[in-house]
Design a protein around this nucleic acid. Sequence first.
DNA 1: GCCGGAAATGATACCGATACCATTTCCGGA
DNA 2: TCCGGAAATGGTATCGGTATCATTTCCGGC
Lengths: 346, 346
Amino acid sequence: MARTPPRPPRDAAPAPRAGKAVTIRDVAKVAGVSPITVSRALNNPELVTPDTLERVRAVVARTGYVPNFLAGSLRSRRSRVIAAVFPQITNSMFADAIQAFTDRLRAEGYEVLLGLSSYEQREDELIAGILGRRPEGIYLTGINHSPQTRRRLIASHIPVVEAWDLTPTPIDMLVGFSHEKAGAAMARHLLAKGHRRIGLVWGKDPRAGVRRRGIEEALAEAGIDAVPASLEPPPGKFQFGREGFADLLRRGERVSAVACSSDPLAQGVVAEAQQRGLRIPEDLAVIGFGDFDFAAHTSPSLTTIAIEKARIGQLAAEALIARIEGREVAERVVDVGFRLVEREST
Amino acid sequence: MARTPPRPPRDAAPAPRAGKAVTIRDVAKVAGVSPITVSRALNNPELVTPDTLERVRAVVARTGYVPNFLAGSLRSRRSRVIAAVFPQITNSMFADAIQAFTDRLRAEGYEVLLGLSSYEQREDELIAGILGRRPEGIYLTGINHSPQTRRRLIASHIPVVEAWDLTPTPIDMLVGFSHEKAGAAMARHLLAKGHRRIGLVWGKDPRAGVRRRGIEEALAEAGIDAVPASLEPPPGKFQFGREGFADLLRRGERVSAVACSSDPLAQGVVAEAQQRGLRIPEDLAVIGFGDFDFAAHTSPSLTTIAIEKARIGQLAAEALIARIEGREVAERVVDVGFRLVEREST
DNA sequence: GCCGGAAATGATACCGATACCATTTCCGGA
DNA sequence: TCCGGAAATGGTATCGGTATCATTTCCGGC
């Protein structure tokens, strides 16, 4: 019984001891160099003889060594992690931005820590947890943050990009556009089409609120003060659009046009109106927001506001990278603007 | 000139020394306890006197101490990070799963590291980078992984959930459904509606490929061997649906029904067909896949295959949590199934 | 063959928390 | 009052890398 334990079946090679993970010291020992040389071979191969490099790489491959970035990050103070906080990603315009942001950062060797704050007050807690992971940069959606969060972010001394909104006083950097102007553009478009009785089916998130103000101010300038609205909780689902329009009708609001805070809501309004026998745009004009992918391919196609979503993500990523690399960012506030796309629904 | 530098404008409170971050030792010193007691106050408050707890918390608040989880994770071997790898999130069904997955994990105090592999061979490299961060669990989309990646994951000894597909031999755990059966269900639906000339507008991702096989086999059983297809690169954009259908027509394929690998493609086909004066479903039946939010709200509404996307994310999260907490998972393979939803387009 | 500086490698300390075990404090019961 | 065990707290070592500085090796030019 008291025999030496049988060696594992396969792997005649220096079998990684079960349970104990391979460390840089193990690799160093097998390769006959010091740990720091292994570190250099992996991170700065140009500092190492081709011969040494090859030897180290061979041992790494053979042992299945996986460097522990937690340890490395702790010492070097470089986590190569960037955090991104979004309210949500279902049915939202943020997916494109996340994709572009992540792709850009991956190309530079960063990993992305994703936080979803659900439009609630969870942002504080979420960001506290994130900061503990020592990201090298943070992307935030929107500019409405609690004083505590602002303080924490400033104290952290890491680059911060706020996105999707506009303010002359960002925490650090910003990539976005004016929701007030976007709202005004929607209003003016409907006014130009001759509409005077305009209803809103609108999401309850903060940026949508600003767009609504933009609409109402533009309408007020045209002498229109009553703007009936049906408010829906995020996310902007098609179903909520249907219900919102039904709600307006139920309340007896007689509107010739409906503006929506997002395309899914707008398409929901279209669907509900069509079901009730209304012709679009003759009986009812509908305008959305976001230029979602489907907007150009429904029947009728949807007039909307287009945002360069992916560009926001990409610019935000680049701003963070620039800062991390010590380059000064010329424009701390970038306005990517928006574009009204007129289609068949208005 | 040689005056002491002016103290920072505000903050009469014990100003954190610029540059040097507050550590647990600083907090301990100010609170008059040992570092380990601070650690306990923050992580296991029940181990500490209410009095001590309050004192520590006060100091933490005053100094703005942010625990360094890199250090803690290194020592405790618990990163409280879970990684999730998706091919992409734009125009995809994964957004709902990510949302549910992330929400569930946040509730348990985990942060999510998001990897987007872009359907390319980047998965290997991506996962290597991720493993270095020592996540406590990994969510993977799909079951097609390189041998190297499989080996690495197994060697890492962390719980793995594969999702969106089905196999009796997952790396560890799995939550998904049978794409083969889903494809067959689509085919049978069209057959039942009397269609014999069926075309495909189809995405090129691996799981779509399996669904296609399911369709073709079911059609073959019905004696239909020629199934013209137009293949489109991911992501499944509406525009690609239009082009795909145009492509079929250009090639002279006369079809009475088109099956698509995703709803956006299907809606693109619908749009293109409508534009060419075809009535749906009389002249052309169209079936999609995924039951995207818009599918029920377009005109005509879209017949499709519904997946409980959020449930996949949630179950995957729960499986990982269970494993991490040492509970045995009864069902290592969970089939969430699918449901054909018949609407107006077929 | 010798010299000097660059290239390659190594020794040591350290990042900031927590595991582990030891010590002190506290409190009810004999 | 004393005792014993639980509760609270602390000392020290350690996780696994890399920064820093020191040392050794290498090589061309004189």
